[in-house]
Structure formats: structure tokens, C-alpha cells
Lab assay of single mutants.
Amino acid sequence: MSIQHFRVALIPFFAAFCLPVFAHPETLVKVKDAEDQLGARVGYIELDLNSGKILESFRPEERFPMMSTFKVLLCGAVLSRVDAGQEQLGRRIHYSQNDLVEYSPVTEKHLTDGMTVRELCSAAITMSDNTAANLLLTTIGGPKELTAFLHNMGDHVTRLDRWEPELNEAIPNDERDTTMPAAMATTLRKLLTGELLTLASRQQLIDWMEADKVAGPLLRSALPAGWFIADKSGAGERGSRGIIAALGPDGKPSRIVVIYTTGSQATMDERNRQIAEIGASLIKHW
């Protein structure tokens, strides 16, 4: 067993022997301040990774656009098919120029040779490549099948209805392509620590998230040296922004954090800054 596999296998073990965790309302004060600064709703939840206990939450059962955070769930569904012998990570998928959609920095470079399922998941999570996500959605049967996968996990809230990039439209009061912070946090925890996926697939999923290259201005910008984070960000229309993450000190994750916002007129930089400040408060009061 590799060191990384050992780390993920012992996530519940280490967490069980940690000192009790206590909620700190100071972080919620910052979440509410972010709402004021952005002029928009902000949803927040913080779960203990081992027990699933909610440590703090704000608007945990209000719907927010998922945006690209759905790509972690998508690759979880792909990995479940791999575990069941219905898919192979090494299978190569070929596609054409007509398949390319807006923001496809990886797939646009491989029109000639195609990409493997493993490479597509890596591109979808680490670079948020939209064509990679659409190609992977095709392998599982489309958005409705991802929703069905989530329902089978016990998540009857999260739903995907459309493809990239239309799913980022974020129309107010439109339930399409949305989740709730509580539902997303619980589902992410199941994917990373539950028995739904094999140990190898859980490790692969967290490795992809740990290698995320496009979430630097968010929670990662607030992390002290030595902290662990595996995350996936999302951005959408109407001032929408979000991030889902597993993080913790001492090089291992111990909490799940989900943050979503929508309806702001603020710039992307300002949305990023507010999420980073929430992260800084979380870490300060850990």
C-alpha cells in the first residue's frame, strides 16, 4: 500500500482519535458579512469528516447552483462504474471539434489522439474542462443518470439537468442544476469515506481534487503551510461562485467545507476574496 493510499485508508482512524471539535460562531459572522459585502445569498456548511456531524452552517438547506462543483460527483459516478466493471479508466475516447464547448483548455489539445477516461476526469476536476465533463456525462448516460446515481446514494436534493455550459445559467428560483450545502457536503463525505467506492477509487477521487489547479484564489489562499486540501470550485452566471473541499491540518483532511453564493453584482475577484476570507476565519478558529 502506498503512503497516499495509507493516508486515505486511515482518515477515519486518525479522526477518531482527534480531540473533540467545537464550532466557532466567528466564522458564521464572516459568512454573514460576506453576504453584506456581496449583496447576495451565501450558503455555508462545515462537517466533521469522521462523524458527519454538522459543526457550523448557514442557509444549509437553500438551493444554490452547483456550477462546476458537480464534476466531482460526476467522476465519482464514473469511478463507481469502474468498480462495477462497467468502465475502464484506460479506455480512450475520441471526439471532434464539434464536441468542444466553451472553456476546454485540455480537451482542445487532444482532438487528434483523444483522451482516456482517467485523463478526462483529471481534466474535468483539476482544470474544470467543460468538454471533458460533457464527454464523461455521455459515458454514464447524461445528466439524468448522474441525478439517479445521487438518488441511489441517498441524495434526493442534488440534481443535474443540463450539460456544460448551460448548467451554469443560475436563474433565480430555478431548481435545475442545483444542490443544497448540506446535501453536497453529505454526498461528498460519502464519496470520500464511505463504502460506495473502493479504496482505490476513493484515493483516485481525492487525488484529482488535491491536484486542483484553478481554485488557488479561494480556500487555498488562506491555508497555512502543512495543511491538506482537496477541492473543486465552480463559477456561473449572475454572480455565482462555489467551492467544495476536504481539508485539515497535519497533512490530512478532517472536515468537509461547502460554500456557495449566487445573485451578486460583485466582480469575480471580490467573490473570490470573500470566500478566501471565510476560509481564513475557519482556519483561525479551527
Rank of each mutant, 00 (worst) to 15 (best):
I3Y: 13
I3Q: 11
I3W: 07
H5Q: 12
R7M: 05
R7F: 09
V8W: 08
V8N: 14
V8S: 15
A9T: 15
L10D: 03
L10M: 12
P12F: 13
P12W: 12
F13E: 02
A15K: 04
C18T: 14
P20N: 13
P20W: 02
P20G: 05
V21L: 07
V21Q: 05
V21F: 06
A23V: 05
P25N: 09
T27V: 14
T27Y: 02
T27S: 07
T27C: 08
K30E: 07
V31R: 01
K32G: 09
A34K: 04
A34Y: 06
E35H: 03
D36K: 15
D36V: 14
Q37F: 14
Q37S: 13
L38S: 08
L38A: 07
G39V: 10
R41Y: 10
V42G: 01
V42T: 06
I45P: 00
L47E: 06
D48I: 04
D48T: 05
L49H: 05
N50L: 12
S51V: 06
K53H: 13
K53G: 11
K53F: 10
K53A: 14
I54P: 15
I54W: 08
I54A: 10
F58K: 07
F58L: 11
F58N: 15
R59W: 04
R59L: 04
P60T: 12
P60D: 15
E61K: 13
E61W: 12
E62G: 07
R63D: 03
P65D: 01
P65H: 04
M66I: 11
M67G: 13
S68E: 00
T69H: 07
T69P: 04
F70Y: 05
K71Y: 00
V72G: 03
L73K: 01
G76D: 01
A77D: 09
V78T: 07
V78Q: 03
S80Q: 12
R81E: 07
R81G: 06
R81M: 08
R81W: 06
V82F: 07
V82H: 09
D83M: 03
D83A: 05
D83H: 04
G85D: 10
G85A: 10
G85F: 06
Q86I: 14
E87F: 08
E87C: 07
L89A: 07
L89N: 05
G90E: 15
R91H: 09
R91P: 01
R91G: 05
R92C: 07
R92V: 15
I93R: 03
I93N: 03
H94R: 13
Y95W: 10
S96C: 10
S96P: 07
N98F: 15
D99Q: 13
D99G: 06
L100S: 04
L100G: 03
E102P: 15
E102L: 10
P105H: 06
P105W: 04
P105Y: 05
V106F: 07
T107G: 05
T107E: 01
K109A: 14
K109W: 09
K109L: 13
H110N: 08
H110E: 07
T112M: 10
D113F: 07
T116L: 08
T116S: 10
V117A: 04
R118Q: 13
E119A: 10
E119Q: 15
L120C: 06
L120E: 01
L120V: 05
L120N: 02
S122W: 11
S122R: 12
S122N: 15
A124N: 04
I125L: 12
I125W: 00
T126L: 08
M127V: 12
M127D: 07
S128H: 00
D129W: 00
D129L: 00
N130W: 00
A132C: 03
A133D: 00
N134G: 03
N134M: 04
N134F: 03
L136P: 00
L136T: 04
L136N: 01
L137K: 01
T138K: 15
I140L: 10
G141Y: 05
G142F: 01
P143L: 04
P143T: 07
K144E: 15
E145M: 13
T147R: 11
T147Q: 09
T147K: 08
T147G: 10
A148S: 15
L150H: 04
H151C: 10
N152T: 14
M153W: 15
R159V: 07
L160N: 07
D161V: 06
R162E: 05
P165A: 07
P165V: 09
E166H: 11
N168V: 06
E169H: 11
I171D: 13
P172S: 12
D174W: 02
E175H: 14
E175M: 15
E175T: 14
R176Y: 07
R176S: 09
D177N: 04
D177G: 03
D177R: 01
D177S: 02
T178Y: 02
T178M: 03
T179H: 00
M180G: 11
M180A: 14
P181M: 02
P181Y: 00
P181C: 08
A182Q: 11
A183M: 10
T186G: 14
T187C: 09
T187D: 12
R189M: 10
R189W: 13
L191Q: 04
L191I: 10
L191P: 00
L192I: 15
T193V: 15
T193I: 14
T193M: 14
L197C: 05
L197A: 04
T198F: 07
A200N: 15
A200D: 15
S201F: 04
R202V: 09
R202A: 10
Q203H: 14
L205S: 01
I206N: 08
I206L: 15
D207P: 02
D207R: 12
W208V: 02
W208H: 03
W208N: 03
E210N: 10
E210Y: 10
E210C: 12
E210R: 10
E210Q: 12
E210P: 00
A211E: 14
D212R: 04
D212I: 02
D212Q: 07
K213H: 12
V214P: 05
A215V: 04
A215D: 02
G216I: 06
P217I: 06
L218W: 02
L218N: 03
L219W: 04
S221D: 09
P224A: 05
P224S: 06
G226N: 12
G226S: 11
W227K: 00
I229P: 00
A230Q: 02
D231G: 04
K232S: 00
K232H: 00
S233P: 05
G234V: 00
A235K: 02
E237P: 15
E237K: 13
G239V: 01
G239I: 01
S240Y: 03
G242T: 02
I243V: 11
I243F: 05
A245D: 00
A245G: 09
A246Y: 12
A246V: 13
L247G: 01
G248R: 02
G248A: 03
P249C: 07
P249M: 08
D250H: 14
D250R: 13
D250C: 12
G251A: 12
K252A: 13
K252N: 11
P253R: 09
S254C: 14
S254R: 11
R255S: 03
I256N: 01
I256H: 00
V257N: 01
V258D: 01
I259A: 04
I259T: 03
T261D: 01
G263E: 06
G263W: 04
S264K: 05
Q265N: 09
Q265H: 15
Q265M: 12
Q265S: 15
T267W: 05
T267N: 12
M268D: 06
M268L: 12
D269T: 12
R271Q: 10
R271I: 11
N272F: 02
R273A: 13
Q274L: 15
Q274I: 10
I275F: 12
A276R: 13
E277C: 08
I278Q: 00
I278S: 00
I278Y: 01
G279A: 11
A280K: 15
S281W: 07
S281M: 11
L282W: 02
I283R: 06
I283E: 03
I283T: 09
K284I: 11
K284G: 10
H285F: 15
H285P: 02
